[in-house]
Structure formats: structure tokens, C-alpha cells
Design a protein around this nucleic acid. Sequence first.
DNA 1: CAAATTAACGCAAACGATTGTTTAAATACA
DNA 2: TGTATTTAAACAATCGTTTGCGTTAATTTG
Lengths: 344, 344
Amino acid sequence: MEKKANIIDVARYLGVATSTVSRALKDHPSISAKTKKLVFNAVRELNYSPNKIAANLRSGNGTAIGVIIPKINSNFMSNCIFGIENVIYPSGYNLIICQSTEHYEKELSNVKTLIDSQVSGILISVSNETVSTGHLAMVKANNIPLIMFDRITESLQVDCIVNDDTRGAYEAIEHLIEQGYSKIALLNGPEHIYVYKNRYQGYKQALASNNLDLQPDWIIQNINTQSNAYQATCLLLDSKHPPDAIFCASDTLALGVLEALKQRNIQSPEQIGVVGYGNDIYGDLTTPTLTSVEQFPQEIGASAAQIMLQILEDKNVKSIPKTISIRPRLIVRRSSSRKVKPSI
Amino acid sequence: MEKKANIIDVARYLGVATSTVSRALKDHPSISAKTKKLVFNAVRELNYSPNKIAANLRSGNGTAIGVIIPKINSNFMSNCIFGIENVIYPSGYNLIICQSTEHYEKELSNVKTLIDSQVSGILISVSNETVSTGHLAMVKANNIPLIMFDRITESLQVDCIVNDDTRGAYEAIEHLIEQGYSKIALLNGPEHIYVYKNRYQGYKQALASNNLDLQPDWIIQNINTQSNAYQATCLLLDSKHPPDAIFCASDTLALGVLEALKQRNIQSPEQIGVVGYGNDIYGDLTTPTLTSVEQFPQEIGASAAQIMLQILEDKNVKSIPKTISIRPRLIVRRSSSRKVKPSI
DNA sequence: CAAATTAACGCAAACGATTGTTTAAATACA
DNA sequence: TGTATTTAAACAATCGTTTGCGTTAATTTG
């Protein structure tokens, strides 16, 4: 196994200086066309390709973009990464991916690693545990562009890509009302989490806009598993004034609802309407198929990546941080379609 | 924004040589305990952390491990990555992830990028298009350890982690036979793909072991979408001798089968047994819930990563390439349970 | 007690590129 | 023809570490 050729080898091969080779390869104006051609031939001849590490060290321009996410193995996140990769790849950067596994300590460690690895920028979706933002400030202090997507912290002035959760919830509720439901319950996740807070807002706003009273008994917070949702649904159904529809702040919760309904032989959508959020599970596999709010994770990832590339292009330009809100779309399926029966 | 401290800063701060700092930080024996303590204090004081890029350039030891996969946004692959990350992270390496998007050209480009980025090793699951292996030979030629997982090419002598697809299919068929089905059809993917070839083998072997004749009419190859599976199922059902069970080489195909059965009001498992492969979709959401072969993607990723770390630890040891086969497990659900009705 | 060993650290050359500054050759202009 | 200007390429410093080797002082050995 021979050693890989370096820039010195090709310079020697041609009898020129390394600087000439370097400049020829990046189409520098002060190298003649003739020399460039020679260089390119020699490069092919010797099978040379530049060592990114060395280039990075000297130039200071990193060759990688870091991504920190809680866990990669969810439909939503893996699709975000998919979107990110599609945008980043053509630019020549490569992606370094870290998982915080929802732990602040690991997220902190991830940040340090990425800084030490001289990444050009960092895209992050913060862990549930993350409240302090010192580690993110550290990123900015190192002059590394930072962009947050999906899970953001509001206390930091950076570019953000988020879902318009308020709107998504709002439209889900409006849809239920249109379908003739009026006693609409909410199964929400932990309210301190950004997305659930917003979905709660949308729920409230939609009720208000439609002159429906907000029934505290129908609002159940802090549900985060399917079985909790199952239990909560049972409580709702057993209450004195049971709702006629249940809006779930995640699809997982909706599964718990469907489970409870099935067990009690309560028909959906006829007796109870159900809407999930995230379109995260295979919503058309359930019986009834599950209406849910689609979040476009690929677009979210792609937008985040695009903004990053833009920032990296004109590094000096200091624009004010903006927040881009991706508009979700309600996917109506059977579980909420009381008026017009869809063909499925 | 002040500049990040480098090793020279901390050396100067202490009035020692950079070599002393460097050696102290890696616990080199020829540095006294007292000096080490001083160095560590200074490091904390100046908030120093070593520049991985520079270290890499000098030592030749890369700090990253590359992963190339077709697409990240599938249940299977994202779980593989999850497993890989969990193992790699504690070792201090970081993960560079590339997608081939099932294109050979991009896979080639990914390989080049990773080599230029001086990765310490590469884990790959090849694209469907990949037949030539010149790019992988290039990896070996650069003395970079290579490990293939899930999607492998058989012509190359490298460590592999694969599913025992033959066994998975075998057990699925045996299960169907146990349940009293005897006319078992196969809906298979493109036979030239490694996994489908093996699943076909398992199917044949299981029939043979149980003295069942192989009926060519019941073997339908080259099905790769749900709708194709739907059509194929219709043909099977309309034939003179329809099967009483259908084994699908992927869950997607199984969905097409269930769709066809539902439309014709044919009961599963009573009239037709159905088994999928991969446990890739939410198999307990369908009606009936879908029996499928679970593949343990996290374990596959983790195994691949572990072997890589092992190789990187004792680089000189040249062991012969081994293939590790992960044993899949049949998850029995309703769609194939004719004898004993499960509680679901 | 001189010689040999050891412990602890400094010196300076790499690693492979990039880039500001010079230099030499070629062209332009008067 | 001689000087100014442009063009093309060489020179050499530099990025932040690591590491082979040399040096010094302290310790051990015969």
C-alpha cells in the first residue's frame, strides 16, 4: 500500500511550488490557464485529493457542520436529518451527528466536542432537560453560527425554525367543530415544553373564536405515554359530562385514546372524534384511520440547513436573528370525519 | 470575543514547553504528578481544550468515524444509527453521516469525502445500485478499516454484520405451518438484492423440511411497492388454486396484502394467514395486527460499531474478516394466529 | 566517589495545506 | 532603449498539535 499523494508530491512532479498547485486547484486568477491544466492532469495522474484536515487547520474554515438532536430514531427526527443532509451535501460540508438522548449533560458534551472539532456551524434541537443555555452561549462565543430547529429555547437570540404549533392545534380544533363536535377535550403533554404550550394555546384560541367555553375538566395536562393517555381517556369517558371529541397533542396519545374507545366499544368518529398531532405514526393503519397534523420534518431540516449555508457564505454580515415558522397541515382521516364519510 | 486559548498559551502561562502540556494532558509517564496538576489547573483557568483538527493532522489519528447509508429516514436505518451512536460516543469519536440516497455515484462521492476527511473508519450499508466495489477497495487501499452492515456486497473481504434472513424467513414459514397453513405463497422483493435472495432461500428450505411442495404459482418475485403487492394478492386469490397463507418479504408488501383481503372481505387469520418482514411499520396498529420478523436494528448498528472500535484499538492486528449474523425473532400477532387466539 | 542510570522536561521538526509577500519575467508605455 | 506596469509563480511563514531526541539534574550503582 503506497502512501497517499500530497500536495508536495504533485508540486514536485510538475516542478512547481505547492502554492501554485493550491491556487490552481481553486481557480485562483493569478495562475495561468496552461498551468492549471497541467496541475489538473498531475492531480489525476497521482490520484491526489487534498487533505481536508490540513486545509482546515491552516485556513480556519471547517469542513463540517454539527447537528445535535435528542434521538435520531423517531420518524420526525430522522426525516429532519434527511432534509438537512439533502441540503448540506451539495455544498461540500459534511454532517457530524450527535445525540443528546434527552440529557443535558450529554448535550453539553456534544457541544464541546463539536467546538473542538472546529465545525463551521451547529444545528440543534434541544433536549427536554435543557433549561440553562450556557453551552449554547459558548457556541456563539466561539463565533460559530447556531441555528435551532423544532425544539428551541426562547431565551436565546438565534435563528430558529419551528412548527407553528398554535396554528396546527387551532386548525385541528376548527376542523372538529366543523364536523359538529362541540365538547372537545385536550390531552396534552408536559406543559413546560415549548410545543405543548403552543398546542394548548391553539386549542384555547380556537375554542374562543368559536364561542365555546373552556371546560377545565376536559383539559388534561402532562400526559406523555400511550398508557397514560389510555387512563386519562377512561377518566374522561366516565366523567359526568364526557366530551364528544378528544384532541391529542401527539399521535402516541391518540393511540391510547383509540385503545380506550375500542375496549369500550365506542365508535369513532360517530360517537367520539379523535385528532392526533405529528402524523408521526402510520396514521392510516389504525382503525379508524387517524386524523393528525402533519409537520413536514424534511422541510424543517432543509430550511435550517439552508439558513446555515447562507450564514456561512457571508460570514461578516450580521443579520438579526429570525424565526421561521413552518405551517403544518391537517391530514383529515376517518377518526374525525363525521359529516362526510371519506372513501377509506 | 477573545481568541480561544491554544496549547502555547497554557505553556506560556506556566512557563513550560508545549510538549510538557501535551504530555501532561495525556497522562504521559515521564511527566511528574506535580506538573500534571499544574497543567490541569492552567487548562481550567484558561478554558483550554485541544484543537482536534491540529491533533489529527500531526498524529494521523482521525477523530471521526464515517457512516454511509442509503437513506436515514426509515425506521430500520435510523435505529441502526441510534445503535451506532450509542457505542461510538463514549469512545470519543464522532460520527460523520452520509446518505447515498440509493445512488452509486453519490455513494462513491461519499467515500471520497470521508477519505479526504481523514476518518478513522467507515461503516457502510450499500445502495441498491451498488454492484461495483472499486470505491470500497479504495477505502482499504487507504488503510481505513471498513465494515459493512445490513446491505453488503459479497465480493469483498471485510467484516460484515447482517441479518440471518434465511433463518428469519424459515421461522416465519415454520410458524405458519404450525398454525395449520399449508398452501403458503411468497411475495418477494427484487431477487438480486441480497436480503430478498436469502428470504427466498429460507422460504424454500422451510417448505422442504416440512415436506411441502414448492408451487411456482405461489411465488411472486420482484414486488416492491404496496400497490404491487395489492395487485399480486388479487391475482393469487383469483387463481385456480389460491394459497391459504402469504409470506411477505417486507412489511410494506404485507400492507398491500391486508388491503386486498379487506377489500374482498376475506378474514385474516381465519381464511388467510399473513406474515410480514422487518417489523418496520407499526405492526400492532393494523387490523388484524401483523405478525412480522423483528430485525433488531439497534443491535446491528451497535455490533458494527463495536467491531470498528475493536479494530481501531489494535490497528496492527490483522484478523481475518468475519461475518456476524444477527438472529431475527418472529413477532407473532393476530394475522397469523389461527390456532391460539392471542388476547389482542 | 566516579560512572551509570533514571526522571523530568525542553527543543525543534514534523503533519499538509493556505496565503501574504517577493521576485522574475513579460508586456506596455514614453 | 529604458522605465513602469502587469502577470505568473516562487518563497516562506503559519495553523495548533504531537513526538523523537537531546539535555539537565537527581539518583543509583559498583
